[in-house]
Design a protein around this nucleic acid. Structure first.
Lengths: 129, 129
DNA sequence: ATTGACAACGTTCATATGAACGTAATAATC
DNA sequence: GATTATTACGTTCATATGAACGTTGTCAAT
C-alpha cells in the first residue's frame, strides 16, 4: 500500500462527491455541490485533475468528456484521514475521541440505542469467538 | 465567541504541548517535542507567535523570556477542530464517525467496557432527568 | 463546411503553511 | 567592563492549497 499523498479539504470534498455518485464528470460534480458552496467549473476540474495525479481517481475518457472513477477504495481513504486526525488531536488514541464525542456532541436516544446495539455485537464477538 | 482563525497541523501540535504543560516558554516546548519530531527553536518560536497573533495564546513576559499561556480553553478548541473534521468527512454527522471508529479501530475489551459504562451513564441521564 | 458550445490540459496567481534566519536587545559569565 | 549566550521580533523563502483563466481540441447543430 503505497503511501497516498495528502488530501486537502477541497479535494476531499470533491472526492467525496465522486464516491457518492460512484463516478462523475466535472459537470456532475459541480451540479452536486451544495448550494452554499458553489465552485467554478474550472476549479472543480482542477481538483479532479489533482486527485487523479495523486492516484485517488482515474479518468476514463467517454467521447469528449472525462469520467472520474475512484481508484482507491473510499473506505481506505476515510480510514487514513481518520487516523491522521486521531494522531493530530488525540495522539492516535481512539477512546478519548469517543469520549469526547459522547460528551460534547449530543446524541439522540435513538442514536444511543444504535450505538448500544453495535457495542453489544462487538462485545459478543470479543467474548465468544 | 468570535470565530477563531484556522489552526493548521503544526500550530495545533505546538498548542497542545502548551496546554499539556499548562504554560510554557519556547525552549520548554522544544524540549517537550517527541524525539522523532524535532523542530528548530526558531520554528517553534514562529508557531507560538502565530498562535498568539491568532488569539489562541497570550505571551506573558518574565524577565527576558516569554511564557505562553492558553487564552481560549483547550476544550473549546478541541471541540471546534472535531466539528470541522466531522463536517469535512461526515457531513457533520456524529454517528457515522462513531460507527467507523467502532468497526475500524480495534478497541480492547477494557475500552469497550469503558464505553459501555459511559453509555449507560448517558442513557440514564436521558431517561430520568 | 462553418459556427458555436463545451471540455481537457497546461498555466497562473494569491494566500496559507512549514520551516527557519538575521539583527538587536538583554542577561549571564569571564 | 568585555564577551558570550539566549531570546524576541521582524523577515524570508519554498511549497501547498484554493481558486480560476487561456488556448486548443473536439463534438454537434446549422
Amino acid at each position: 500500500m503505497p503511501e497516498l499523498p495528502a488530501l486537502p479539504r477541497s479535494e476531499l470534498e470533491v472526492a467525496r462527491i465522486v464516491w457518492h455518485l460512484k463516478h462523475a464528470t466535472v459537470r456532475q460534480v459541480v451540479d452536486a455541490l451544495p448550494v452554499d458552496r458553489a465552485l467554478d467549473f474550472f476549479t472543480v476540474q482542477t481538483y479532479l485533475r489533482r486527485l487523479t495525479d495523486k492516484g485517488y481517481l482515474i479518468a476514463k475518457r467517454e467521447g469528449r468528456t472525462n469520467v472520474y472513477h475512484p481508484k482507491v477504495k473510499p473506505d481506505r481513504v476515510v480510514r487514513q484521514v481518520v487516523r491522521n486526525f486521531l494522531d493530530q488531536l488525540f495522539d492516535g488514541h481512539v477512546l478519548p475521541l469517543m469520549q469526547h464525542l459522547l460528551q460534547q456532541e449530543k446524541l439522540t436516544e435513538e442514536q444511543l440505542d444504535q450505538l448500544q446495539t453495535e457495542l453489544d455485537a462487538l462485545r459478543n464477538k470479543a467474548t465468544d469467538p
